[in-house]
């Protein structure tokens, strides 16, 4: 699952995920019917419109054994919200079946592939933002850090208050801009506190938000998806 942001704004993240997963021996497909999971509409109070997107999404992945998402919030949308979008019956069962096969990228590596060793070197000082939906709806806690721990040369600095929301919240960022800005400023302050050169994340919406503010504040911190770190440092 490349996601709408992954397709349009962050194709390199998807490419990195493909490289890493293939490197780990996974056979990949990109069902062309996928576009957006419908989360933007759903979160703004348009569940009917979201349901249209969800139906197309479920159809697109009908034949996929596993669906690996490069964004945690999109995986969470499928796992947590898709079933409830449909009335009880075959449509809901299909949604539940997709939910059961859908994983966020780091979750797939840790829980399904059970990766315990990675041929990766990436010398840099790095910190990580946990992303609310990935943390709270998917329950992804130490997995990503375990993966970063396998990276040679990575100087990992825990982010203070990593569990705090970055303030994106979808349309919240433009509906409540003052509050969103206050939250992202706090997040940026914490990132800068660590002295890290790289901020790593699991969700492109959060990364887009934090990166945008880091740049505006003139901070020289690179922002990378976990897959980009793993792909860049991959030793063939």
């Amino acid at each position: 699952m490349i996601t709408c942001l992954g397709d349009a704004l962050y194709p390199a993240v998807g490419e990195s995920a493909v490289k890493v997963l293939r490197g780990l021996g996974v056979t990949l497909d990109f069902p062309a019917g996928q576009t957006c999971c419908g989360q933007p509409a759903f979160n703004s109070g348009y569940p009917d419109e979201a349901r249209h997107s969800a139906r197309a999404f479920i159809d697109a992945f009908a034949d996929s054994e596993y669906v690996v998402s490069v964004s945690g919030s999109c995986a969470a949308m499928v796992r947590h919200h898709y079933p409830g979008l449909f009335p009880e019956g075959p449509a809901r069962r299909r949604a539940e079946a997709l939910a059961a096969r859908t994983f966020e990228f780091s979750q797939f590596l840790v829980d399904v592939l059970r990766v315990d060793d990675l041929p990766i070197a990436y010398p840099a000082a790095a910190t990580m933002h946990h992303s609310c939906h990935t943390l709270r709806l998917l329950g992804v806690k130490d997995g990503p850090e375990r993966l970063l721990d396998m990276v040679d040369g990575l100087d990992y600095r825990p982010l203070p208050r990593a569990q705090d929301c970055c303030g994106f919240g979808g349309t919240f960022a433009v509906k409540m801009p003052m509050v969103s800005e206050a939250l992202v400023d706090r997040k940026v302050d914490h990132v800068l506190e660590t002295g890290a050169d790289v901020l790593v994340g699991l969700d492109m919406s959060c990364l887009m938000n934090i990166e945008g503010r880091l740049r505006r504040r003139g901070a020289r911190v690179a922002v990378k998806h976990l897959a980009e770190i793993l792909a860049a440092g991959w030793r063939e």
Binding site: G6, Y10, P11, G14, V174, P177, V184, N209, E211, R216
Partner: peptide, 19 residues
């Protein structure tokens, strides 16, 4: 409203599905 406080990443030259 976004760009008032943050830079906005522009869409990539070539989307993932094109690549």
């Amino acid at each position: 409203k976004w760009t008032a406080a943050r830079d906005l990443r522009a869409p990539a030259r070539r989307s993932f599905r094109r690549r």
